[in-house]
Design a protein around this nucleic acid. Structure first.
Length: 504
RNA sequence: GGUUCCGUGGCCGAGUGGCUAGGCUGAGCUCUGCAAAAGCUCCUACAGCGGUUCGAAUCCGCUCGGAACCUCCA
């Protein structure tokens, strides 16, 4: 029996707004698409949260034994600054501002993005396609939509005909975002220079490039560039099929981006493209969404170094990862120094227990004793799977890990004996704790710079202190401890004179 | 104005009608030469008002407060 059969998943599907049982189209395989970054600027911490969410989801799917094809794109063209006809795409604008070739912009910020992903231990996707690498396909699907009467060309640009689509599909437009087409008509803001469109709800599939526009490709309608929404439709269906399992992204993409994706794919292929839509919620600062325009966003590098005004100090990538995993992906998460400090301490506790559980060895003896402790440990292991299978509840899973950590500490301190549990249960505890910490939640031990040299040096000092203590020279032993403490090395005396240290 | 969502103890945050979430902080105890770490105990909450129910933080309604989306946005 596969793990995904033993611990069946439920996920909150944004289409229904409800938790649903997850069943993949092909048993044992999962296709997942997530909208990646627009590489026209550095990614900020809010962006990182979304990718962390789907990293954890893909990690757990794999942990359960699914074979996952995870596609996350790079948007390197076609993202308009505004919806107006003369709208400039973001990459092109940035290229003009920084006086660089657009592909230099793309390269620079793609590399930054990858660096940040690595720092947070976010695994690379299976495929990372770019929008500019799929111009041909985007032109082709646009032609198909025109042929089906769902799109029209005006003046070198092509627009999707929302009204027509809605008539053919029994009002499918708005199915994801809960909007209806009449309300959109009334509520949409008036934009300038919209006279090209037949209806203001229509959106661009292809935009004509003005003479000054840098990024341009030939098309049946003249030189231009693709609209924003069409790239995701093309790349997701190309690599995952016309219907695939999971589509993810930030909550703020639900409308219009994802709504438009559904319309394009359904329009072209006559079926809804996605079985489960998953949206991760926003990172907030003082209750407001983190965003550049509000001036409350900061870069991961500023967070690590503690150089932003809002930060009291720096926090390590793994502390931040832990912090984010303490809330559910579908809730907003409010950032604060206090919360980060608490996360820092909590994460250290889990780490300490990880080291202990790795070092502990069972004395042997494989007979199951069915003690209360053994039952409790087995139950905790089970709970890890159950909580993660319950809509990827990382917060609850961490709570279980904290309880496991307490039991692990008991073994170390002698409050409980390993002889009370069988070797089998113990190795399950070991494997589950380490597996969920590192593989599922991606929480790795913090590594410090020159480890071997530092470690050796501290050990010499610990030997000196041990000798001082046996000689009851507490003045000297305290001095060694206090001075090391002052530079961030905490010594801990254990039983029988043994000594350990941890780095602050 | 429309759409969606939220309001949990000092702080952060899970909570799928009945069973201790968890973390951080604070207080006390145990252990310790003293610390640190660890363990134990305590501070036990669901915005307000109604309703459904044997029973509601959890379902329904209203009020108050907050957020996101409706325009680029993870």
């Amino acid at each position: 029996m596969k793990l995904y059969e033993k611990y069946p998943l439920t996920v909150t599907n944004s289409l229904s707004g409800k938790k649903e049982k997850f069943e993949s189209i092909n048993p044992g395989f999962v296709g997942m698409y997530v909208c990646g970054p627009t590489v026209y600027n550095y990614v900020h911490l809010g962006n990182a949260r979304t990718f962390l969410t789907f990293d954890t989801i893909s990690r757990y799917l794999r942990f359960l034994g699914y074979r996952v094809r995870y596609v996350r794109n790079i948007t390197d063209v076609g993202h308009l600054e505004s919806d107006a006809d003369e709208g400039e795409d973001k990459i092109g604008k940035k290229a003009r501002l920084e006086q660089l070739e657009p592909m230099e912009i793309v390269k620079r910020y793609t590399e930054d993005f990858h660096t940040v992903m690595r720092e947070f231990n976010i695994l690379p996707p299976s495929i990372e396609p770019t929008a500019t690498g799929h111009i041909v396909e985007q032109v082709r699907i646009t032609q198909e939509l025109i042929a089906k009467g769902l799109a029209y060309e005006v003046n070198g640009s092509v627009y999707f005909d929302v009204k027509q689509y809605n008539q053919l599909t029994h009002n499918a437009y708005g199915i994801l975002s809960g909007r209806n087409i009449e309300e959109l008509m009334e509520s949409g803001r008036e934009l300038d220079a919209q006279n090209e469109k037949r209806d203001k709800r229509d959106f661009a599939l292809w935009k004509k490039a003005s003479p000054a526009h840098i990024m341009r490709w030939p098309s049946p309608w003249g030189d231009g560039f693709p609209g924003w929404h069409i790239e995701c439709t093309v790349m997701s269906t190309k690599y995952l099929g016309e219907v695939f399992d999971i589509h993810g992204g930030g909550m703020d993409l639900k409308f219009p981006h994802h709504e438009c994706e559904i319309a394009q794919a359904q329009g072209a292929n006559d079926k809804p493209p996605v079985r489960y839509w998953i949206h991760s919620n926003m990172l907030t600062v003082n209750g407001q969404k983190m965003s550049k325009s509000l001036g409350n966003s900061f870069l991961p590098s500023e967070l690590f170094a503690g150089t932003h005004q809002l930060l009291e100090r720096g926090y390590s990538p793994m502390t931040v990862r832990f912090f984010m995993l303490q809330s559910h992906y579908s809730s907003t998460l409010d950032f604060s120094n206090e919360a980060l400090n608490a996360a820092d301490k909590g994460f250290k506790k889990l780490n300490a227990a990880r080291e202990i559980v790795q070092q502990l060895t069972h004395p042997g003896g494989g007979t199951s004793t069915h003690t209360d402790l053994e039952k409790q440990l087995s139950a905790l292991c089970e709970q890890c799977y159950q909580t993660m299978s319950d809509d990827f509840n990382t917060a609850k899973t961490l709570a279980v890990l904290f309880e496991m950590a307490s039991r692990i500490n008991d073994f170390k301190s002698g409050n409980a004996s390993l002889s009370l549990v069988s070797a089998e249960v113990f190795s399950r505890l070991q494997a589950t704790y380490l597996g969920f910490m590192q593989e599922v939640l991606g929480l790795l031990p913090e590594t410090s710079g020159n480890h071997a040299l530092l470690d050796g040096t501290i050990r010499v000092l610990m030997e000196l202190r041990k000798r001082a203590r046996t000689e009851k020279n507490f003045a000297l032993s305290d001095r060694i401890r206090d001075e090391l403490k002052a530079i961030g090395v905490q010594l801990k005396d254990g039983k029988d004179g043994e000594m350990t240290y941890s780095l602050e």
